[in-house]
Nucleic acid binder design. Sequence first.
DNA 1: TATGAATGAGCTTTCATTCAT
DNA 2: GATGAATGAAAGCTCATTCAT
Lengths: 230, 230, 230, 230
Amino acid sequence: MGIRERREREKDERREEIIGAAESVFFGKGLAEATMDDIAEAAELSKGTLYLYYRSKEDLYLAVTLKGMDIMEELFRKAISTGEPSIKRIYNLGEAYYEFFEKYRNFFRTFYFFESPQFHTQVSPEMLDACTGHDRKIWELVLTPIREAQDEGLLQSSLDPMEIGVMLWSNSNGLMRLIDRHADHWKDSLGVDLFSLMRKSNAFLLKAMMTEEGLKKFPTGTFEHAATGL
Amino acid sequence: MGIRERREREKDERREEIIGAAESVFFGKGLAEATMDDIAEAAELSKGTLYLYYRSKEDLYLAVTLKGMDIMEELFRKAISTGEPSIKRIYNLGEAYYEFFEKYRNFFRTFYFFESPQFHTQVSPEMLDACTGHDRKIWELVLTPIREAQDEGLLQSSLDPMEIGVMLWSNSNGLMRLIDRHADHWKDSLGVDLFSLMRKSNAFLLKAMMTEEGLKKFPTGTFEHAATGL
Amino acid sequence: MGIRERREREKDERREEIIGAAESVFFGKGLAEATMDDIAEAAELSKGTLYLYYRSKEDLYLAVTLKGMDIMEELFRKAISTGEPSIKRIYNLGEAYYEFFEKYRNFFRTFYFFESPQFHTQVSPEMLDACTGHDRKIWELVLTPIREAQDEGLLQSSLDPMEIGVMLWSNSNGLMRLIDRHADHWKDSLGVDLFSLMRKSNAFLLKAMMTEEGLKKFPTGTFEHAATGL
Amino acid sequence: MGIRERREREKDERREEIIGAAESVFFGKGLAEATMDDIAEAAELSKGTLYLYYRSKEDLYLAVTLKGMDIMEELFRKAISTGEPSIKRIYNLGEAYYEFFEKYRNFFRTFYFFESPQFHTQVSPEMLDACTGHDRKIWELVLTPIREAQDEGLLQSSLDPMEIGVMLWSNSNGLMRLIDRHADHWKDSLGVDLFSLMRKSNAFLLKAMMTEEGLKKFPTGTFEHAATGL
DNA sequence: TATGAATGAGCTTTCATTCAT
DNA sequence: GATGAATGAAAGCTCATTCAT
């Protein structure tokens, strides 16, 4: 058994090495510009070996995406495991998403590809399933505190928990994309601080979804101070 | 004189023919998969001729994008030219955006490219400028009723008009992207109707940005009925 | 008649305009890199018009070459029309060739093409004939003082006049090509002044071809001083 | 270990195969007209493979040039390794150059390209360096007997060895180019035998550069008989 | 398992030349 | 005579993928 296990372990290590190399290349050049030669060189491996581990360039790209999802999941998990009130933990999720966006911008960007349906044809079903599954797992994480908050009567129960999640997520995501593109442009020439805008927008939404009771317990601005470190 | 004019006109027509062909190809295969051969064949023109009118495949793609912006602008212009109250016209804009998304989905998708900065290097400055300029013009349209609504004391004046616009736009856009990907998936397996969710989300946001006076004049739900045709 | 003549004149003028434009383009980019579009633009004429006057790009290139030959012929003609002794006029020819090389370097370079037999297939027979004829005319010029010098017993009569001409020409030409390539390199890193070397080499040759009588009348160094302006 | 060596050897063989194919194509059509498709077909290899071994068509062309330099070097080396007197070995070099020109005319022609500075931009620095280095090596060969002859007082010491080499080389080269173009034309219609003229011209030059002592030991015509096989 | 040489379809782009007006 | 839009063949080069070793 030891032998088989060691082999497995080595194979996993090799996989990670490849992903590491792929990261550096994809992050630097983007999917289209990156070549398998680049990655093989970065991995100090032959091109053929790459294909031993991943079926195609796109599959390998999704492997990187998957790693990004791992990181995100970890951040989300931490965000909801604080023992704090459910509403606060929902708020934490927003901050965690933002942290991911800030610290792991390159991984954030790989999601564009996964989210772009036209590329799904270029990818193996296995890899796509893996991603989809991971995505679902993360959504589960998001739903947990939302459900709790509804059970506690803090969030309107007329809304489906998934709906609440989607609204918050989409709102953040829409602004993050804007930020990712031209944060500087907006700030400099239009005087709009997209970062604070994102928080404001999210707070508006969350408030709109809370019950009267929830708003009484957690009035507007309850968390902002902590979150922004003030 | 007539000659020059006719030539000019023919050239414009040819341009439109090319864009039409490019549309059909790009919409079918996406930018990366589409080839200039495909487009030339669709246009019943030689490849060389294509390059007589557009410098590169990417430029041609942006020409299609530009056409999408034209359509969008037209819809937006109609939305704000109704003589209705400013708040209603803001609401109209959301509906117009949604109409564009629904009816001109393929054009909507071309915006992904324009919004993705890494591709800007592949594009002629002239074309990029044209797009940027058009983008700006559309934003101007959006700002008009927002400013009015603030002047009338219906929208909070603590917010910058641009900020209001961005929040509404991002929120819609984030959800549209989600819908564009997996509307069916969400509806079928998660039971979430993203379309109505988008409206709801936008209504939440708009409400949060209104003044008390505004809310009194236009209570929640004032427009939804009309808009959804109910 | 006046009409026909004016037309002819205008046509010639147009031809010269085209050649002027072609010069500027060919000299800047070389034959291979230059395009008919470039030339048409420089001539402020349409591309089609170019083909009204010249059959092909290569023909047009030879037209420029022909102009170079005109210039060269003029210089040579002046060199041998001084009324000086025949040997001096032979020497003058060398200086004239050198002057051409120095002042009309770009024309000098067009000769490379004409001299390169593999390109002759790309050229109309008419143009080729014109060049060949002009070439011959120039050689006639060169032969005149050589024959005279032989008749006067200054140059060895055992040599064919043409042979003498060829030896002198080849010797100069070989060194000019070297100079054209890397004059600086030779001077800077090898300490060899190719210009003075060319004169020296020619003087050696000429001396070797002179008779004793010739050498008595025109000892080594007779002309150098004048020529170099000292 | 054997494996690596065999691979290395196979790669070298492949390189030579490619060069062989390139030769046949380049010699037949010239650089400009030859296509990589032609060469790939001649080599019975895919076009991609060609680019695995050479960066560009021009690089491949220089590889052929390099082979020509190899041949030339070999001939030159033989010419100066005879144990004969230095002056004779200088003469041998001229004959070797001539032999190269006669037997390897096509290679001789490839030098045109290397000697034409405007093309240097199209070539990889590595290849250019290789050529330049080889060129230098050959010049070293030429200088050896010249220096000896000067040390022995046979060639004038007022001349730089390099200058002597350049004069002889240019003189031969100038005539070779003439011969390469139109040897037949000259012989048939002008009655000039360029080959013998080249020898004569070189002899003149060499004589002019010798000292009195040198001329006493090796009077005019000493070598011609042997060289021409008479 | 790992290699890396070989493939070959496929890409965008260029440009001399033609021809209807 | 002049135009300039249209052509279309061809070119150089790339790169994901395969496969014999």
